[in-house]
Simulated assay, not measured.
Amino acid sequence: MSSYSETPRFLAGAICPKCEALDRIKVYSKDGKDYRECVTCGFQDEMHFTSAAKELETRVNAQKHTVPTEVVNIVKLSDQ
Rank of each mutant, 00 (worst) to 15 (best):
M1G: 13
M1C: 08
S3W: 06
Y4K: 11
S5W: 01
E6P: 00
T7K: 15
T7C: 06
P8C: 11
R9E: 14
R9D: 10
R9N: 13
F10I: 07
F10M: 06
L11W: 11
A12L: 11
A12F: 05
G13F: 03
A14G: 01
P17E: 13
P17N: 08
K18W: 05
E20C: 08
L22M: 09
D23M: 03
R24N: 09
I25Y: 01
I25A: 03
I25V: 14
K26M: 08
V27M: 12
V27T: 10
K30G: 01
K30E: 13
D31L: 07
D31H: 08
G32V: 05
K33R: 14
K33V: 06
K33N: 12
D34P: 02
Y35D: 02
Y35E: 05
Y35C: 05
R36E: 15
E37P: 00
E37H: 11
E37A: 04
T40R: 04
G42D: 07
G42A: 07
G42T: 04
F43D: 07
F43I: 00
F43T: 01
D45S: 10
M47F: 08
F49N: 04
S51T: 13
S51D: 15
A53S: 13
A53M: 12
A53Q: 13
K54R: 12
L56Q: 14
E57S: 14
N61K: 05
A62E: 13
Q63H: 03
Q63C: 07
Q63E: 14
H65D: 12
H65W: 02
T66M: 07
T66K: 04
V67W: 03
P68G: 10
E70T: 13
E70P: 00
V71R: 09
V72C: 05
V72A: 08
V72W: 00
V72L: 12
V72Y: 02
N73Y: 14
N73G: 01
V75S: 11
V75D: 11
K76V: 14
D79E: 15
D79V: 11
Q80I: 08
Q80W: 06
